[in-house]
Structure formats: structure tokens, C-alpha cells
Nucleic acid binder design. Sequence first.
DNA 1: GCCAACGTTGGC
DNA 2: GCCAACGTTGGC
Length: 140
Amino acid sequence: MNHWLFKSEPDAWSWDQQVANGVKGEEWTGVRNYQARNNMRAMKVGDLGFFYHSNIGKEIVGIVEVIRESAPDSSTDDARWDCVVIKAVRPVKKTVTLDACKVEPGLAAMALVTNTRLSVQPVTAEEWRIVCNMAGIDPI
DNA sequence: GCCAACGTTGGC
DNA sequence: GCCAACGTTGGC
């Protein structure tokens, strides 16, 4: 199983909205970046990810699960773009801010820190463990 | 609201 | 195929 991180501006789509969608989840439309898209194409149903609020908060607020593999993005006719569907699994006990990630030695190479503009990122097993620990939850 | 970083586009 | 121009993201 692989781990990921999804960024969203809470103004546009927040964790609360994601939670409100329940088990039907949300199609992760709007990604127009090849790297981010390729990351989604690599996802399998059951993969887990962090849900990160960019701009406002700048913190990891919850855990999501991939519930459909990448398929054409319904928000565009452009065949280049496709996306997965994710559902909220659980909130973190304690949000993990970008600042906290930056000062954590084990997260120095994390894409969140090194590649700020990438909206869908891979997270290594070790990074996953460290962030879950900081978030006060058991790694699932 | 500004701007740095970075990705994409298009002229040559 | 290079690179300048441009657009977007996201931290500050």
C-alpha cells in the first residue's frame, strides 16, 4: 500500500466538506499538472493519504482513502486529465502544520517541504509514520 | 496582495 | 530543441 498527500484550499474544498460527503467521497477534479496526475494514476483503491489545507491553515487535518482509481476528470473534456475519488477516513487528533514538518528532521525530504507547489504528492512509509505520530494517531 | 518557484506554451 | 514569456500555486 502506498501513501499520498492531497492539497486543497479550504476556501475551495475543505476537510469538513470532504467529511460531509461520507462514504461516497469526492472526485478529486481540477488537477492540471502532470506530476500530480501521474501520482493519482499510480494510486490503488485502499491507498491512504493525508488531507492538507493549503493557504489557510497550512496543516494536515485528516486521513483519506482512495476509493476509485484514476479515471477521466469529469470537470473537463480534455482527455489528458483524470483523477481518483477519495473519501474521508478520520480526522487527526492534532493538526500537523507545515512549520512543524519543516523543523522535523525526519521530514526534511518530504515533498510538502521540498516541492511546495505539487498538489498531489507521494508520502514515504517513514514520513507517514512520523506525521501520524505528530498527529497523535496510530499509523493505519 | 505580493512574489518566488516552477510548469507550460509557443515562437524561432 | 531551446528559451522567453506567461500562468498558476501557495507561502509569506
